[in-house]
């Protein structure tokens, strides 16, 4: 099967409400590894993720996948910052993407049970999804994203507002997926998380890629004053 990546974004701009949220932005995403998208609030991290996933359209510029764009989204999964859960059981939520894809119910249920076990939700299969704790909800969202075995997993602040234990559990699941060869693109405010998970860092500032580099090098010696200031915890405007 032809690989989904690389993705080439050229001069892409996203505008809403009369102002530019992103761009003009150029970025190439190659296969393999984990990229952490970091930057101050309003830098355009979420907008870039949504642009890549096709949830927003560029006003100008282009996105070119290695496969026809009509097939691109089906080979990605997106985990939202605030999990969007169906008003159904945990098991039904996890198996939902497979049911949409036409997988028969017994097969979907079987795979959903297996992945629920992998993320530690086996004890809650019949529970309403909305009854879970915040950490469990995010694990459910992650399980649902992983069940289709996507080539590209996009995560938008998946551990924001979670306690340390939930954060560690989610990172463990992610590391397992990464070890399995899954390409991961994660937006995070948590620099520790970026260091733990990422191979490379994309620093966004004012809607543009301000700096990009190998993770260890970036955190050790950022090349731009803005990135250095951000890592120091200075307020960037």
């Amino acid at each position: 099967m032809v690989s989904l990546l690389p993705l080439k974004i050229e001069n892409a701009t996203v505008r809403a409400g009369g102002r530019t949220l992103l761009g003009p932005l150029n970025l190439t995403l190659d296969g393999g590894g984990t990229s952490a998208l970091i930057g101050p609030n309003g830098a355009g991290k979420t907008t870039l993720l949504r642009l890549i996933h096709g949830l927003v359209r560029p006003r100008d510029g282009s996105l070119a996948w290695h496969v026809p764009v009509a097939h691109a989204r089906a080979r990605q999964s997106f985990v939202f910052q605030h999990p969007i859960l169906l008003r159904r059981s945990v098991l039904a939520n996890i198996g939902f993407p497979l049911r949409l894809a036409g997988v028969r119910r017994p097969d979907a249920t079987g795979r959903a049970k297996k992945i629920a076990a992998d993320v530690g939700l086996s004890d809650h299969l019949a529970a309403p999804a909305m009854a879970l704790s915040a950490g469990e909800k995010q694990k459910l969202a992650l399980a649902r994203a992983l069940i289709t075995e996507p080539e590209l997993l996009i995560l938008d602040e998946p551990t924001a507002n979670l306690d340390g234990r939930s954060k560690r559990e989610i990172e463990t699941i992610l590391k397992k997926a990464i070890a399995g060869g899954m390409r991961v693109l994660i937006a995070t405010h948590d620099m520790g998380q970026a260091e733990r998970l990422a191979d490379e860092v994309v620093f966004l500032f004012h809607g543009k890629v301000h700096e990009r580099g190998e993770a260890a090098g970036f955190f050790a010696s950022p090349q731009t004053p803005a990135a250095a200031a951000f890592l120091r915890g200075d307020i960037l405007e």
């Binding site: 996933h53 949830l55 997106f78 939202f80 969007i84």
Partner: peptide, 22 residues
């Protein structure tokens, strides 16, 4: 549900059925 159903490539019929059920 909008973003989730778009993200999962749900067709119009699937979106409608999901919303009616939920």
């Amino acid at each position: 549900y909008h973003d989730l159903l778009i993200s999962l490539n749900a067709t119009l019929i699937q979106r409608t059925a999901t919303l009616l059920f939920d």
